[in-house]
Amino acid sequence: MPSSDIPTSRPGNGRPSPAAIATVGLRKSYGDKTVLDGIDLHIPAGSVFALLGPNGAGKTTAVKILSTLITADGGQSQVAGHDIATSPDKVRAAIGVTGQFSAVDGLITGEENMLLMADLHHLSKREGRRVSAELLERFDLVDAAGKPAQSYSGGMKRRLDIAMTLVGNPRIIFLDEPTTGLDPRSRHNMWGIIRELVSDGVTVFLTTQYLDEADELADRIAVLDNGKIAAEGTADELKRLIPGGHVRLRFSDPAAYRSAASALHDVARDDEALTLQIPSDGSQRELRFILDRLDSAGIEADELTVHTPDLDDVFFALTSGSSSAQPKEAVR
């Protein structure tokens, strides 16, 4: 049989790149509502992958399926090289999951939560104590270790949650909206924690509705919209999909505004606000060109801003089609 007939191997002489997570045609629906409509993913080991999407896009469902919490209706998925449908326990041994809602036992203390995890990972008593003390220290929970977890703040609960996930030393970690509901400081702490995980060589599958978070942390980003992957690539690749970089000049003097508009080519005018938009990639050369033109015409703008397309632009451009589906959701 020619090798090109084997779907799992890449054509040519190279071995398939080691994928931590690979899915083909993943589908899931609840009743007649399709949540995931054929998702293909290939996430290399040791990378950070962000699944980005608005609320209700199916991000959590994807995490639940890939972490063996629920079963898919269709498609094939391999996590850590094991099929999630046929050998879920092998998948479970390789992964750690931190959900959207903290998966800690609120009735017992932080330390008891850690020791519970150590017991369930079959560590010896001494090893369990060592690992749990180490992680409590690393996540700044030593002072709170003796208090019931339900008394913790949102950020502390989330830190305990991740610490519990790390007890088993997982190679692949699912983080379902790890910073939702956190204050800015806790959010930045969490980003630091995630970067540390990555430097240890862990594969991170992250879902988020925050674009800056995906931009900040992820090697590759997939935009999920209405159960389908609307776009996938690095943050830069995604940004390149969307035109929209421009220089914006604002004037207070209408005369200066008019002469600037005639001095520059290809401008979009806003006569009411006295602003001009010039398409630009924001490079030094293009900026100098604009400034030279203004100088030689003796015009001074009150304000100059450079706008480069960010993931927000990408996100809104790619998910705008879903606005027709919004009223339906509002009824629910």
């Binding site: 972490s67 063996t68 919490l69 326990d89 092998k90 479970r92 041994a93 992964i95 999951v97 959900g99 809602f101 903290s102 998966a103 800690v104 036992d105 369930l120 990972h121 519990m164 088993g168």
Partner: peptide, 10 residues
């Protein structure tokens, strides 16, 4: 949430 965690553990 802890039960969901247990379900995803080996």
């Amino acid at each position: 949430g802890i039960i969901a965690r247990f379900r995803t553990m080996a």
